[in-house]
Amino acid sequence: MEHYTMNLTLKVWRQKNATSQGSFETYQVRNISSEMSFLEMFDVLNEELIHEGKEPIAFDHDCREGICGMCSMYINGRPHGPWEANTTCQLHMRAFKDGDTIVVEPWRANAFPVIKDLTVDRSAFDRIIQAGGYISVNTGSPVDANAIPVEKEKADMAFAAAACIGCGACVAACKNSSALLFVSAKVSHLALLPQGAPERRTRALNMVAQMDKEGFGSCTNTGACEAVCPKEISITNIARLNSEFTLAGLLSSNK
C-alpha cells in the first residue's frame, strides 16, 4: 500500500481523575504517516501537548505487539478500532484517511471505572482470576511435559481459549457490560484440560460469583464481544461456561 500523510481531528475523552466529571477535547494532528500505529499517533500528539506545556493524554499500553492486553481505547464506536481481530496498538493509521474525525473514549462499564483520561481500572479481572483461575500442582522435581495425555482437539480448544489477553474489549462492547466472554475463556482453558480437573466445579462457581460481585452485567448472547475480540475468542466458550456453571451448581457438594 502506498504511503501517505494525513491531517486528523481527534475528539478525546479527558478526565483529570476518577472523581472528576470529564469531557471531550478536540485536537488537530498534522502530517500523520499512514505507517504509524494508532498509539504512535497518540505519542506524537502527547509530545506536542508536552511542548505546549499541557497535560499529555493518559492511555494504557505496554508491549505494543498485540499480546499483552494493556491497550484499550474505544475508537469511533468500536473497542480497539475498526479492524477485526486486532488490538489498538496494532491498529495502523492506514485505517484512516486525510480529514477524518476520530472519537476516542475509554472503556465504559461501572466495573471498569476511569482512572484518568483513557485509562480504566481493570483490576476486577485480576480478582476474577484470583477467585478460581488456577490449578493445583505437586511441587518437587519437574514432571515430564507429556506425562498426562491430552486429546488433540481439546488441547486446541483450550489453547484457543487461553489466547485471551484480558484486555476487556468484550465488556466494553457488550450492551450489558458483561464479562462472560473473558470469564468463559479463562474457565474453558482450564476445564478442557486434565490439569484443570481438580478445581473444575468450584472454579466455575467462584469465578462467576466474583464476576457478579464486581458489577458486570449478564450475558444475553448478542455476540458483540466475539465480534470485537482481538484474539477471536469464540462465544461457544460462554455456552461451555454456562454448562460448567449449571453442572457445578447441581453437583457441587459445597454450600
Binding site: 475528539k11 472519537v103 461501572n110 450492551k175 450489558n176 449478564s218 448478542t222 465480534a227 470485537v228
Partner: peptide, 20 residues
C-alpha cells in the same frame, strides 16, 4: 439490571458493529 451496569454511556454508539 443490565442497563444499570454502564452508568456513563458512549458518545459514539457501537450500533450494529458486531450484533444484530
Amino acid at each position: 439490571q443490565n442497563r444499570a451496569k454502564r452508568k456513563q454511556g458512549y458518545a459514539v454508539a457501537m450500533g450494529n458493529k458486531g450484533s444484530k
